[in-house]
Amino acid sequence: MTTDTSPTPAAEPHGPADRPAVRAATAADAEAVTRMRSEYVLSTPLSEEWIRRCAQELAPRLTPTGDARAFVIDAPDGTMAACALALIRPVLAAPAYPHGVAAHIQVVATHPGHRRRGHARAVLTALLDHLAATDHVTLFELHAAVEAQPLYRELGFSGSPALMRMTRLAQPTSTTADSVAGTTAGTARHRPNRLTPDQYADTLPKSTAFACVYFTDEDDRPVQLHSVYSPEHPWQLAGGTMDHGERPFETAVRECREETGLTVSGPPRLLAAVYGLPGAQWPYSTIGMVFDGGRLTAEQIGGIALDPREHDEVRVLSLDRWKPLMPARDFARLHAVAEARRTGRAAYCGTWDRDDA
């Protein structure tokens, strides 16, 4: 997505005469839109052959009977200054999208020479309005660059950059109360209608949660278990994913007992909070808590009873010896947890991302 998302105050249009002229794209614009996508959206630009093929495919879809809609701003020299492209697709109907129609915002792009003028906002707003009014779209989705999120959130999208969504239902008729409150038609047009709790929840980013227990031996060397199912995370703390209705410490106690036979007693002492963004292989973010399980005697470590379906070895090593055995992000988390135990200050591990193993 374009990074032209927050026009400077001096450049932002202030009145009708200052606003850029936005028009609906036609089949004749297919090549220009394709080139904008190639140059300013894709990480690797398309070859001329692929530009030709994509333009030929897009052209018939940019018609009233096609499934593509786009709005553009023309530069004074006749080239394309900015564009926004959406592809319409059917979905199973639901209260938040009663017509069973959704749109994926495929492209929002602005030529570098025309950025910081509100062009991205203008073409995207026109596109959203058209989709809602003409194509009965109420569910909108897009993938965003991190720097583009402020604009999309302002227009009503929510979620993580991996998938931002917005549900825009038909606006109710204006009331006297609206007028008294100073709500103008122009302001209300881009504000999402108030949703039911279920509808709102459907727009939010989803997360999985886990909880685990950090043990050391009496010399403060971390105790970890070797996984039989996860080569990406070969060495793990005792713990796992939360079940419905569980609180984090309850999960940690249950998972520890199932995986090691050890029973952890409270009160809970939080060592670290962990967060990771979703990745290509998993669509949800990850939230976790690491609790202090204390120091184990040699007898306790020797009595650990592993679940062979999950782990096949227990090791006790110093931090420097753990480092070469683990992915960088896993070791960073382990090191942060060890420091939290040592200093008494809980750690925050905020970059335990899925695609960063």
Results as ranks from 00 to 15, higher is better:
T167G: 06
T44M: 03
R309H: 12
G245W: 09
D198L: 08
T3A: 12
T196F: 10
T196K: 13
M1T: 11
T5I: 09
Y152A: 02
R254V: 07
A59Q: 04
G350Q: 03
L155R: 08
S227C: 03
M36N: 10
L139C: 04
R19W: 06
D217A: 07
A347V: 06
L124V: 12
M1C: 08
A185W: 02
A298L: 03
D129E: 12
I105Q: 05
G276K: 01
A272T: 10
G344I: 05
L58S: 13
Y97C: 08
P267K: 06
R321Y: 02
D202M: 04
T208G: 03
A148G: 14
P278Y: 07
L296Y: 02
S43W: 07
G293W: 04
L142V: 07
I301V: 15
G159F: 10
P308C: 06
R121N: 11
P60E: 02
Q236L: 15
V316T: 14
Y97N: 12
H111D: 15
V107F: 07
E39W: 15
R247E: 10
E299I: 05
L334M: 12
F210Y: 14
G288P: 01
T110I: 08
V253F: 02
A133M: 05
A144P: 01
P64S: 10
L204T: 02
Q236D: 00
D202L: 07
G294F: 03
L163V: 01
Q171A: 13
T251F: 05
Q171G: 00
G66C: 03
T216N: 02
V316Y: 08
S318C: 03
D4L: 10
W235T: 03
G15C: 11
S230N: 15
T63H: 06
G303M: 06
T110L: 05
S230D: 15
L155P: 00
R247W: 09
V22Y: 13
A30F: 06
R191F: 02
G266Q: 05
S160L: 12
L127M: 13
V72Y: 03
L131I: 14
A211E: 03
A332H: 13
V123N: 10
L128N: 07
W322L: 11
A96Q: 11
C349G: 00
E218C: 01
H233Q: 06
D202Y: 12
R221V: 01
G350K: 09
Q281V: 04
R354T: 07
Y348D: 01
A170L: 07
E246Y: 06
P98M: 09
D219P: 00
T5A: 14
R153E: 06
G293V: 02
V91M: 09
A162M: 06
T251M: 08
P95A: 11
P327M: 14
H311G: 01
T196N: 05
